[in-house]
Amino acid sequence: MLLLESYLNILNRNNVHVQANNGPVLLYAHGFGCNQTMWNQVTPYFESTHRQVLFDYVGSGKSDLASFDVKRYSSLQGYAQDVLDVCDALGLSNGVTFVGHSVSCSVGLLASIARPELFDRLVLLGPSPCFLNHPPDYLGGFEREDLEGLLSLMDQNYIGWANYLAPVVSGETEAGALTGELSDSFCSTDPTVARVFAQTTFFSDNRADLPLVSRPCLILQHREDALAPLGVGEYMHAHLQGSTLKVLDVVGHCGHMSQPFLVAEAMRNYFNNLSLP
């Protein structure tokens, strides 16, 4: 068990926000390139029925950049630990419904494998256990060179960032060097951190973890999604025991932002149809 001080640190570190204090817990986890504000159009649908928890992963949004540790966050387990830390800091020990987008789906699954008793169920929006193609059994949609291309695109788009091209200072550079002024573009992600997150996201392969998941999952698949094609959603459904697959009539990867009512409706139906213990 952590000390009170550590709890407060985590709430600050992960910029945790709790909306309302009654009802079952919905814990929202944002995807790569974003922060908790991406859920702003979904949360109003559950305002009166759920206690909703939002947070930013360390390195994203308004989290404490000084806490960013390249080693920890070079593995999705590091992000899963953020999820568990936030639950511990809020004193949650069971009954959590995890709602994750994109890479956060894998993060949530890892967290549920580590602490199954904590979670009742998971809602996975646009999940992909692995973005790389592994023919002939699995087609994640991308080749390594596509993902390298993404990293260089990110570099070129971060040129506009304050100090990104400033002279590199020699001598001692500590973790604190990351705490710079953040612009609001790209959902306030520091370029150095974003690169680590991108590499971790797109080069992770969590297919072997799927059979280890024991909690029921609702897979929300976008009808036409460049990042997580239909085949990937079906693969998830086939390998996650007790999962439900729902294809949303959404083009793109961010249904919760472009068609939030579709996402909320699917979640609501799923919750209502469950025979709750």
Binding site: S102, G141, D146, E148, L153, C254, M257
Partner: peptide, 17 residues
């Protein structure tokens, strides 16, 4: 493909917000 990922992970979230 690389630009598609960038569009989906960076551009759309910004644009919709």
């Amino acid at each position: 493909l690389a630009s598609r990922i960038f569009l989906q992970t960076h551009v759309w979230p910004m644009l919709l917000r």
